[in-house]
Design a protein around this nucleic acid. Structure first.
Ligand SMILES: [Mn+2]
Ligand SMILES: [Mn+2]
Ligand SMILES: [Zn+2]
Ligand SMILES: [Zn+2]
Lengths: 142, 142
DNA sequence: ATGCTTATTGAAAAATATTATCAATAAGGA
DNA sequence: TCCTTATTGATAATATTTTTCAATAAGCAT
């Protein structure tokens, strides 16, 4: 199901603002901050307020149409997509973002942690940082 | 080496503010936000300004005396300790925090990710969320 | 196509969170 | 005890996120 129907089925309306944001995020490799999203849309002629960017990011995130990731500096950035449980690798230079699945390998680690800490583990936060293929090239000449 | 010498060796001074903050964090199981640290110290008579809390958290973090963790809502919180590479489990109810090592198991996963995404992985962000032993008890009666 | 209902928007302000300035203070070595 | 200078508190400045509210427009029912 495409994102429009997904939103519609959840009772939300398809607005220009949401289309612009989704188009932008879908066509952008790098994760974008709310401010960057606002600026990018303004540059392509949109009048959308920053407030609507925040509001719609919340809506889109609730409906699993965008993912929030943590930039290396700890700030939040957003990227399109995200069906099912998955995680992200972020380029620490350009914020290029890719996703991957396969954190089942945690099962053993979780058991250890639960035994050691007496916690009951229920979820996790996982991201990898590194260099995307583009930035690896540039890195060579440093 | 204790935290005072660690700071001293790095050229920092041992101040009341830093002592108060370290004492508080060392004696607190739960991760605390800058605001919570400020409030807790104020309640025990300290005049320290919130600004100094921020400043000293930065210093203490640089010197590996405190760790920053992400609360379930994405906000930053701080907890004492942290020798060497390690990660944290956070109680999503009370922010109780415990640490663990042992993310070597990532080696395989990283290889897969690098193959799939063409990224060169250089670091990671990992935290587990769950319920601490205390909160597990209370959870039963919900 | 037209009107109706109400979710959504933009503008503005408010609330939070974080950082910068600067004179006064105090840590630590001489 | 004195000196140097890192550190502090007070204040202001930025930056980030949320709230309010009247105007607008999406989508459904005529
Ligand atoms: Mn995703
Ligand atoms: Mn730690
Ligand atoms: Zn890159
Ligand atoms: Zn707990």
């Amino acid at each position: 199901m495409d994102w429009k129907n997904k939103l519609r089925n959840a009772g939300y309306r398809i607005t220009d603002a949401r289309e612009q944001m989704m188009d932008l995020l879908i066509n952008t490799q790098t994760a974008l901050s709310p401010m960057q999203i606002h600026k990018a849309l303004a540059e392509q002629g949109s009048q959308m307020g920053l407030v609507s960017v925040y509001r719609n990011l919340a809506v889109l995130q609730e409906n699993d149409l965008v993912c929030m990731v943590f930039a290396p500096d700890g700030s939040a950035a957003y990227t399109a997509g995200g069906i099912g449980h998955h995680h992200h690798v972020l380029c620490q230079r350009c914020l290029n973002s890719a996703s991957f699945e396969g954190c089942e390998g945690f099962a053993d680690l979780i058991q250890e942690i639960e035994a050691q800490t007496q916690f009951k583990v229920q979820g996790h936060l996982l991201q990898f940082y590194g260099l995307c293929s583009e930035c690896q090239k540039n890195e060579i000449h440093v």
